[in-house]
Design a binder for these strands. Structure first.
Lengths: 163, 163
DNA sequence: CCTTGACCTTCCCATGATGGGAAGCCCCAT
DNA sequence: ATGGGGCTTCCCATCATGGGAAGGTCAAGG
């Protein structure tokens, strides 16, 4: 029910989108420029908050900013056919499934290796032996071209290990 | 069999690691500086190729460059206890499983939504309706701190949609 | 009225692993 | 000796995000 325009920090708190990211979304054109106070402060109203939550939710579902841009346009167009939205969603699902399969393959291979490694004081280690084996499949280079219209670029699949 | 030292391009062809990446691995300390010809060309011998294939294989299993650095050190130390290697591998497995679960959650949610969207000319769209719904769980912010010793940083989970 | 502290602004930088491309040198085969 | 392809280094872009500096603004309390 709060109606008065609020500042970016407050909007961040209420939508779960950081102030940094709100500014960035505006700078890159995902969101239209916010209205400003005389001093230059950005102000957000309830409709803006609604949009921000929309973006947040879409991010949580793994959509890229580019995809969200399309979704936002469709959302604003009340006469759009739902087919377009569904197509974007299915593209996203396919992408998620592909990435899951890729990670699953890695996990399974590693699980096999870890199982056969006793992991004690002794230096015998099937894991290192596997890594050092010369004849692994050329493994189709990542970043292979997709089918034109539905081309996707596989993301980075590695882990960041904090330390 | 081929014994003579070869150039970086040839090493790239034979190991599946791009010349760019070989230079980068050297620059960042994952690999020791390559020997150079008088003209400054890098030269690689069979042992180097073996190492490069090791790195390549580890990358294919999703290990970060930092983890590979540890694995390489263990590989070179023939007296290492296999426990250390196994620990790294299990950390990696846990990380992969966590990421898979996260993607799986997104995929399932989207599949439910896509199922209920007829995807025709009509503008009714449960997918957009969901995105526009105000009350979604605060969704624990990504990048939450892990447990000190085994701390991991979750990766980016979004899609790049080529266009 | 003035200070203080919390907030806002913009701008630059870093992340991780990868590729693109420019400018310039080198090597081999014709 | 010349041309083309490979090598060198260096800079830039990606994608979404955060960190932090330098400086302006606002509201509350002395």
């Amino acid at each position: 029910m709060s109606a008065g325009p609020i500042t970016i920090g407050e909007a961040a708190r209420r939508t779960g989108v950081s102030a940094k990211m709100i500014r960035w979304y505006e700078a890159t054109g995902l969101l239209p420029p916010a209205t400003r106070s005389e001093a230059g402060y950005r102000h957000y109203d309830d409709a803006d908050l609604h949009t921000l939550r929309f973006v947040r939710r879409a991010r949580d579902l793994g959509f890229s900013v580019e995809a969200i841009s399309d979704l936002l346009a469709l959302w604003r167009d009340r006469a759009r056919p739902s087919a377009g939205v569904k197509a974007i969603a299915e593209q996203q699902i396919a992408d998620l499934r592909r990435r899951i399969a890729e990670l699953e393959g890695m996990a399974r291979t590693l699980e096999h290796l870890a199982e056969s490694c006793c992991g004690d004081e002794r230096p015998e280690c099937p894991i290192l032996d596997d890594l050092a084996t010369e004849d692994h499949a050329p493994a189709p280079r990542r970043h292979s071209a997709g089918s034109e219209a539905l081309a996707t670029h596989s993301m980075d699949l590695r882990t960041k290990r904090g330390r």
